[in-house]
Amino acid sequence: MPILELKDVHSYYGHIHALKGISLTVEQGEIVTLIGANGAGKTSTLRTISGLLHPREGQVFLEGEQINGLPAHIIVSKGIGQSPEGRQIFSRLSVMENLEMGAYSRKDKEGIKSDLDHVFRLFPRLKERRSQTGGTLSGGEQQMLAMGRALMTRPRVLLLDEPSMGLAPVLVETIFEIIRDLNKEGVTILLVEQNAAKALSIANRGYVMETGRIVLSDEASKLQESELVRKAYLGED
């Protein structure tokens, strides 16, 4: 049974039909990437999974259990963590407080502490700056904080929305390494990326979205070869 499954999901913002029948699956332990042009509906897909957006039609399953319609805070506690697009951190809270907020829905003090250590091992920079306010961190540090905070929910499935957005090439490299490490530790990852080449290089499988629909899905290596992807997203001709 896939850990995450979407079946013919339709989501709307008012009258705007953002997702027009999305079906996708993510298996336990995979990295799956979702690529597509601006406005294709990638963020909307993630928001639908995490309960911030409720689909009008179709279903979302977590390990076979239907979760669409549940409020976001319940879905978090069921094990879906997310690092939202655009580094939405609490800019007036300190790094530490941000991370603590990530563990909000948990009660296991021991586990929280060890996860905090874990996050600080992954991102030593955050440890140095733990009492600094989120808003004064550099862009890259904010991205690390957003990811660290998502990890503090101890997710089984981690939804990452453009974790490399606006980062210097070296940092992009680091972030992708961390994503791979996390995955090795057993976290299943659904990754939305503009940087299609990078994303496909670490993913097992990928989906290509256009205007609210999935137009292509395959093994990551096959997608890298495909005509469409090469032209539209890898900037080759």
Partner: peptide
């Protein structure tokens, strides 16, 4: 308390607070 921290998150950013697993209602 937990509630106090939830309020703090709410004050900062409602959307992110929701994504962090805070029951807004």
């Amino acid at each position: 308390s937990r509630l106090g921290r939830a309020w703090g998150a709410l004050r900062e950013d409602e959307d992110v607070a929701e994504a962090m697993g805070i029951n807004l209602v």
